[in-house]
Design a protein around this nucleic acid. Structure first.
Length: 369
RNA sequence: GCGGGUAUGGUGAAGUGGUUAACACGGCGGAUUGUGGUUCCGUUAUGCGUGGGUUCGAUCCCCACUAUUCGCC
C-alpha cells in the first residue's frame, strides 16, 4: 500500500501527525538518518532502532552503481538486503548529480556525468531513477530533480524549474510499484515566484508527498527559511512535507514551525565520525584538549553512549581513529535529533512550540561562538 | 683505542654567509546540511648540539667539546 498521512494537531504552522507504511507507523515531525549505501554508516539496524529512529533514507544513485538494483532485487528488496524492517525513503540521485559530478551535462533527456567510482560515463534520466527505485522497493521514492547550485541566475533557475517539472511527470508516468509512494520536489531557489510556480505545478501531478529541495546548498539561514516559507504555503495539508538535506537542530526547529514533517541529513553521522557531538548546550568537538581528562558523559541524554561512556574515552577513540568512536557518537547524535523531534511533537500537541524553541535556543547557543 | 660521517621544531627531514628557516607527519583550533567514510581550512621553530673563532654579518666557514652512527683493532 501507499503511505497514509494523518494530520492530528496544529500549533501555529507546525503539524503533529502520523505516517502509516508497510513497515509500521511513525509520528511526525520526524528526522530520518541517512544510509546512503544501504547502511547508516557504522550502525547496525538494532543500534539504529535503539535511538528510536523510525525511517531512514538511502540512495538510488549509489545503489544503482554498487551493487546494482538487480542484486538488491534478487535479494528480495532493500529491506531484506540490508536486514532493516522499518520504512525506507530513497533519494533519486538528483542531488548526487549536483554534489559529486564534476563534468556534467544536463539536457532535456537527462544528465550525463562521470562515475565517482571509476570515471566511466553515466547517463541518468527520470525514467532510470524511478525504475531503479521501483526495484529497490523502498517505501517512498523521490522524483528525479535538478538541484541547482547557489546562487544561480534567475534565467537559469526558471529553465531548471520547468525542466524539473517535466522530469517529475516523466518519472511519475513510469512509476509502477504499487507498494511504493512517490514524492514530488519543489525547487525554485530563492526566487519567491518560482517557488510558488514549482509548488503549484508539482501539486497538479498529484504525488503522495512533497519535498522542498534546493536548500542547504550554501545559502545562509534566513535565505533557507525564506525558501521554506515561499513554498510550503501551497502544499496540501493532507500530504507529508519533507525538507531535504536539513539536519542542523536549529534548522529542524525552524522547519517544524513552518510546517515541515520530515527531515534527513548526513550531519549527525558525519559530525560523529569527525568527533563532534550535539549537546543541549551546543555542538562540541571532542577532539579538543579540554576533554582529555573529562570523565563526564557527553550530554544530558538517555542514549547508550551517554549512559555508558565518558568524553575522555570518546576523545581517545576519535584521536586514535578508532571506528568505535564514530559509532558511539553516531548513536548519540542520531538520538539527539530523534529526541529533538520527540520533544517537538510533544510541544506541538501541547501548543507550546514557540516556548520550546526559545528554551532550546537559550541552552543551545550558550557555548556557540 | 683509531679513523670517517652526522648533529635543524614533538617526529622525519629540506636549506642558505645577509630582511619572514621548505615540506611532511604530529599537536592545537575551525569547518562540515537529499555522505566520494580517514575530508577540507587555519595555526604551530625569536630557532638550526655546546663553547670559542673568522666576518660588517653565521644555522650555513674554522677549532674544541659533547652526543650519535659506521668501519677497523
Amino acid at each position: 500500500m501507499k503511505i497514509k498521512y494523518k494530520l492530528k494537531h496544529i500549533d501555529h504552522n507546525a503539524r503533529y501527525g502520523t505516517i502509516e507504511t508497510n513497515y509500521g507507523t511513525f509520528e511526525t515531525p520526524m528526522f530520518m538518518p541517512v544510509g546512503t549505501l544501504a547502511n547508516v554508516k557504522t550502525l547496525t539496524p538494532e543500534e539504529l532502532k535503539a535511538t528510536n529512529s523510525a525511517i531512514i533514507l538511502s540512495n538510488t544513485y549509489h545503489l544503482w552503481l554498487r551493487p546494482g538494483e538487480g542484486v538488491i532485487d534478487k535479494a528480495g528488496g532493500l529491506h531484506k538486503f540490508m536486514n532493516y524492517d522499518g520504512p525506507i525513503l530513497t533519494d533519486s540521485g538528483g542531488f548526487q548529480v549536483f554534489s559529486l559530478a564534476e563534468k556534467k551535462n544536463i539536457t532535456e533527456e537527462g544528465v550525463t556525468f562521470k562515475s565517482h567510482i571509476d570515471g566511466s560515463k553515466l547517463f541518468l534520466t527520470p525514467e532510470i531513477s524511478i525504475k531503479v527505485q521501483n526495484k529497490l522497493d523502498s517505501d517512498i521514492a523521490m522524483s528525479f530533480d535538478e538541484c541547482p547550485p547557489y546562487p544561480v541566475s534567475r534565467e537559469y533557475m526558471e529553465k531548471s524549474v520547468d525542466r524539473t517539472l517535466r522530469w517529475a511527470k516523466r518519472g511519475k508516468d513510469v512509476h509502477n510499484n504499487p507498494k511504493q509512494s512517490l514524492f514530488g520536489i519543489v525547487q525554485g531557489g530563492e526566487f519567491e515566484d518560482l517557488r510558488k510556480k514549482s509548488a503549484l505545478e508539482t501539486i497538479k501531478l498529484d504525488f503522495d508527498g512533497y519535498a522542498i529541495g534546493g536548500t542547504s546548498v550554501g545559502e545562509d539561514k534566513p535565505t533557507m527559511y525564506k525558501m521554506i516559507d515561499d513554498a510550503i504555503g501551497y502544499l496540501p495539508e493532507d500530504k507529508p512535507r519533507y525538507l531535504m538535506g536539513v539536519g542542523d537542530p536549529v534548522d529542524i526547529i525552524e522547519g517544524v514551525i513552518r510546517g515541515v514533517d520530515m527531515f534527513d541529513c548526513v550531519l549527525p553521522t558525519r559530525l560523529a565520525r569527525h568527533g563532534n557531538a550535539f549537546t543541549k548546550y551546543g555542538k562540541i568537538n571532542l577532539k579538543n584538549l579540554k576533554f582529555k581528562e573529562d570523565f563526564t558523559q557527553v550530554d544530558e541524554c538517555d542514549c547508550y553512549t551517554c549512559k555508558k561512556y565518558t568524553k575522555a574515552y570518546l576523545r581517545h577513540l576519535i584521536t586514535c581513529n578508532e571506528t568505535l568512536g564514530g559509532r558511539l557518537l553516531s548513536i548519540h547524535n542520531i538520538r539527539f535529533l530523534i529526541r529533538l523531534t520527540e520533544e517537538l511533537r510533544e510541544a506541538i500537541k501541547e501548543n507550546r512550540l514557540l516556548e520550546y524553541r526559545e528554551e532550546f535556543l537559550n541552552n543551545y547557543t550558550k557555548n556557540e561562538s
